[in-house]
Design a protein around this nucleic acid. Structure first.
Length: 117
DNA sequence: CTAATGACAAACT
DNA sequence: CAGTTTGCCATTA
């Protein structure tokens, strides 16, 4: 097993992974947005925590998840610092000084796009 | 069980 | 307006 997520109750992480995987290419979202979508608006930190574990598992486009400022806060958790920005640029997202340009334009809110319906 | 930490966010100074 | 502090919740020590 990749990580000792928790003896039980890993749904939170799975949900986060699912949402992150649902992020369309060329779009980004925030930890708070994901947390809010999961109903844990105050657990934005846990989303980041989930990302930390997700990068070990792989298959999670964690580079599409940034903080509310559109800053690549988690760039240091990737292979190298430039990796995250590079991936975003590869998807057509402008990244300058580790910050996403026109973040509001690329922002993809799961609670708004996926909606709970 | 208590304390400290963390890829955040909102509030306060 | 920028920097600092508190809140939140789960994980680790």
């Amino acid at each position: 097993m990749p990580v000792s997520l928790t003896h039980k109750n890993k749904d939170f992480f799975e949900s986060v992974f699912s949402v992150v995987q649902l992020i369309p290419a060329g779009r980004v979202t925030t930890y708070g947005a994901i947390a809010k979508y999961l109903g844990a608006a105050r657990s934005s930190r846990m989303v980041g925590w989930a990302m930390n574990t997700s990068h070990r598992i792989g298959g999670i486009p964690a580079h599409r998840v940034v903080n509310r400022n559109g800053i690549l806060t988690g760039k240091w958790h990737f292979s190298n610092e430039k990796e995250m920005a590079r991936l975003l640029k590869a998807e057509g997202i402008e990244v300058v000084n580790d910050i996403i340009v026109q973040f509001s334009v690329f922002f993809w809110d799961p609670s708004k796009e996926l909606k709970i319906d």
